[in-house]
Design a protein around this nucleic acid. Structure first.
Lengths: 335, 335
DNA sequence: CTGAAAGCGCTTACAG
DNA sequence: CTGAAAGCGCTTACAG
């Protein structure tokens, strides 16, 4: 069983002290290029790689970050994760992935566990009521946090916001422009997260701006933001309120479920019922009919979140204003 | 700025030595329950949490593992990842997620970086030609590895295999039972990974077993295993070989693309052309028409892989035979 | 520019 | 059952 190659081995090979090896591999100024080269050769020869752990113990930098999402199985998240991963890797960081399922205790345990592993920072897509978790975490554990779609004022916390309200406006404006007046919304879960609240607000405000009434019975919540729930909610809506001619869904999964419900109820899309989603997951572009949606660049969103976090870590600047990401209306067949 | 609470603080609070604190929190035998309680109270009071890093430096156990997949954005992987994550978390492990994009150099860099972070083990879905990477890694870095759908004989390597050949047989048997004789296959990428090779083998053998010819022109490869490539390949196939009445696709994404191609070419599914996929991703159940596919329990696959890895780490047993996972034919509308 | 000393936060033998 | 010593693999001052 081969032993781990340590800095000691390199020092012996290059006939210098450990500190000098450290200087060489970390590119410190106080070293002659002669010795540096000699050390680097020894490093090469032995295949030495410094232990991140041992380094981290003294520098308090581990080059790891946590990415905390609701459920990686929700097609909204993999692309975000990919954006985070790509940006992180480019700068030499590894990423722990964790799922909260929107469960606060779970979320808390995860944050704690990431702290135990001494991650340098965390990107989190918080649950609907995470403020206590975030607060105790950020005060106990002195590391930067990036929150996606959730505001939290704190010097070590930065925010990346999708223009949810604007997206809802785009959707409703478009439906109205198509002549719809009986517009419903599938709002997603009962306990809405911040982004849900904002999409609902945008929906209400835009209807009002067009002089259209907000019929409360046409705002249909569901258990979770999945295809199945969208199917249930859509079926319920179209059965009990058949006068509705257009549906704006909190997300694409719900919208896709509603499409299926329409289909099963024999209502044609978009003629009998127009449907528009949010997020523009890949699936939306290939569904039948293809889904009109509010597009968010998820890879970019992830990338920006990671970049922001790493910038906070490199920490020249002390304060960071929120990042706002635009959305766009992607018109396809369903509306 | 609050300081980190260390074992030293707890020792002072409980009026014992650091070693005794260590014994208490690690539930060692050599400690009186009296002192243990006193220490645990102090731990509670101070909110002490041991540093995994410091522990890891001496125990050589970090309670982290790596999960290396092709691309988390491919809908095949998130459910696997979820299975890994759930099983790992249950046993107190955190998971680094990494994407190789099937790129060997990238894969090597990732393995190295995970080793730098001293992960306890790795679960990897290897690229098509990873043997060199795996070999140098496993010999240099004395940690267990779990390979999914790729054989590699080594005492520290364990394998989790999906019955790819059997799945292909199920698909072809079914198509033949429906009266098809002109059966084509979308084979995925040019450089097939092990699981691709096996699905193709199964396809060929089963055709032969039914006394049907294998028409080489009907085996259509593509750039990558995506919806877009499936569309291209499907379109090519049905234009140049219109006599084909059934298509078996390497995976669901390709199959879904082929469905769209059929649709655009005005061929009805399944009457003019039957299509069957592999993997049974969620999307398959909700497509129009819904996709007949070979089902793999991806969450279970991930869970088994993680469990196997952690069992190797706990290391009572020295040798582990491969895990074989069954597949099943899921009949829907497309075939 | 280089090395001897101290220490990051823990655990593992070894005494008693 | 408990504590003093040594050490995991590094880096950070501090001398020279």
């Amino acid at each position: 069983m081969r032993q781990r190659i340590t800095i000691e081995d390199v020092a012996r090979e290059a006939r210098v002290s450990r500190q000098t090896v450290s200087r060489a591999i970390n590119n410190k100024a106080e070293i002659s290029s002669d010795t540096q080269n000699r050390v680097l050769e020894a490093v090469e020869k032995l295949g030495y790689r410094p232990s991140r752990m041992a380094q981290g113990l003294v520098t308090q930098r581990t080059y790891t970050v946590g990415l905390v999402v609701g459920d990686i199985t929700n097609p909204f998240f993999p692309e975000i994760a990919r954006g985070v991963l790509d940006a992180a890797q480019l700068r030499g960081y590894n990423v722990f992935l964790c799922n909260t399922d929107g469960n606060l205790q779970q979320e808390f345990r995860i944050l704690q566990s990431l702290a135990d592993h001494a991650v340098d920072g965390i990107i989190i897509y918080p649950s609907y009521d995470s403020d206590d978790n975030l607060k105790t975490f950020v005060e106990q554990y002195q590391r930067p946090l990036v929150l996606v779609n959730h505001f939290f004022k704190h010097p070590r916390v930065s925010n990346v916001m999708v223009d949810n309200q604007g997206g809802a406006k785009l959707a409703v404006d478009y439906l109205v422009s198509k002549g719809h007046t009986a517009i419903s919304m599938l709002t997603g879960v009962q306990n809405p997260s911040r982004d849900r609240v904002r999409r609902i607000q945008g929906f209400r405000q835009t209807l009002a701006a067009h002089g259209l009434p907000v019929v409360e019975e046409w705002l249909v919540p569901s258990l979770d933001p999945t295809f199945e729930s969208g199917y249930e909610a859509g079926r319920y809506l179209l059965t009990h309120h058949p006068q509705v001619t257009a549906v704006f869904a909190y997300n694409d999964l719900l919208a896709l479920g509603a499409i299926r419900a329409c289909h099963d109820l024999g209502r044609r899309i978009p003629d009998d019922c127009a449907i528009i989603g949010f997020d523009d997951i890949r699936w939306a572009a290939t569904a039948t009919p293809t889904l009109t949606s509010i597009g968010v660049n998820k890879h970019y969103l992830g990338g920006q979140s990671a970049t922001r976090l790493l910038d906070m870590l490199d920490g020249s600047e002390s304060s960071f204003s929120p990042i706002y990401l635009d959305v766009e209306l992607v018109i396809r067949e369903s509306a």
